[in-house]
């Protein structure tokens, strides 16, 4: 008996422990249950030519305000909302923010479970997240939204600079390591493992830097103000980022005396073919076969991008370029003189 006692004791503790672990597991599933209750399915325009007539959204007030993505799906007189419990409502379009591509809808209901935007959290890279959405319209009627598990890959900016991403929003995003980029997922919710709202799933987008689909969510703190303004009926579209100003007299490589090799490819490397005598380039001892890598701090991957970067500089200003000569990186400054042609 004495010998058996510790074993029994251990077994007992283990059972309690496992029970607690199971309870904690139930905790996560409770959190998912509670969060799914706040999700809605949105049906509207579309349904042909690969344009799905559905998307996701979530409730942000007890009286039926719904946050979703601004898209063609809402571009109709009759947008239908299906709640998690299967109830259906016609939604009223309160307004949308074209820059953030979010919209607020309103249904006539009360005491709805909802996400409080004021309590939304900010995430950093490595945070564990759940993405809730009605991807591919898998859930119908009172079926709950689909849940995907993932991690925040990195917090970065959707840089719209010169069309890297074809989107009007240029602010911070959460890049996710889970494939949330699916038809119908736009407007879904990104939450952490405590059930706290963190972001809204973005529309389908390709990363033109490497031609892959981007899985991302827009942080709630970016959209909160717009949502409040739309709810209050006094939304004014935020000014778009001012477009980068082109100088009145843009610079061109030829003005510096640089003759590039013929631009015959999509990405012809910006090799110097000739240096005209008596010009800025010859004064700076630029040589044929030098490869121009950077203008200022911007990479020039081709003759085209070199010309584009130079266009952003006034021809009266000095141009700092980094060149590759052999295996050596050289930084030189080119300044067009008043007599240069």
């Amino acid at each position: 008996m004495m010998k058996q006692f510790p074993l029994h004791f251990v077994a007992m503790l283990l059972v309690i422990g496992l029970d607690r672990a199971a309870a904690a597991d139930r905790g996560l599933s409770n959190i998912i249950d509670q969060s799914q209750a706040k999700m809605v399915k949105i049906y509207g325009a579309g349904g042909f030519r690969g344009m799905e007539g559905y998307q996701s959204g979530f409730i942000v007030s007890p009286e039926g305000h719904i946050l979703t993505a601004l898209s063609y799906v809402l571009d109709t007189d009759r947008v239908t909302i299906t709640l998690n419990d299967g109830r259906r409502f016609d939604a009223k379009f309160l307004g949308g923010d074209p820059r953030l591509e979010v919209a607020v809808l309103k249904i006539d209901a009360a005491q709805l479970p909802h996400f409080d935007l004021e309590k939304a959290v900010a995430l950093s890279a490595g945070a564990r997240v759940l993405a809730l959405s009605n991807l591919f319209n898998v859930a119908m009627g009172d079926e709950p939204a689909s849940v995907q598990n993932g991690t925040v890959s990195v917090v970065t900016r959707l840089e719209g600079r010169r069309g890297v991403f074809e989107t009007p929003y240029h602010g911070p995003i959460y890049v996710l390591d889970v494939t949330t980029n699916n038809p119908g997922a736009a407007g879904g919710a990104l939450i952490n493992h405590r059930g706290e709202l963190a972001g809204i799933l973005g529309k389908e987008l390709r990363n033109s830097l490497n031609n892959t689909w981007l899985n991302y969510a827009v942080p709630i703190d970016q959209v909160r103000q717009s949502v409040e303004e739309i709810k209050a009926g006094k939304f004014t579209s935020q000014a778009e980022l001012p477009p980068e100003k082109m100088p009145a007299h843009p610079m061109d490589p030829t003005l510096l005396g640089i003759v590039l090799i013929p631009d015959v490819l999509e990405r012809t490397p910006a090799y110097v073919d000739q240096v005209r005598p008596g010009t800025a380039a010859s004064r700076a001892a630029l040589q044929p076969d030098d490869l121009v890598l950077l203008v200022g701090n911007h990479l020039t991957q081709s003759c085209k991008s070199l010309r584009k970067e130079m266009e952003m500089i006034d021809r009266a200003d000095a141009v700092k370029v980094t060149i590759l000569r052999g295996q050596e990186l050289l930084e030189i400054t080119l300044q067009a003189g008043p007599d240069d042609k």
Partner: peptide, 19 residues
């Protein structure tokens, strides 16, 4: 970062982004 290079190899389109 790479400079120049083909835009397309077989049917795969190559972005000019960093690796």
């Amino acid at each position: 970062e790479t400079i120049g290079g083909l835009e397309r190899v077989d049917k795969v389109l190559f972005g000019a982004g960093p690796t």
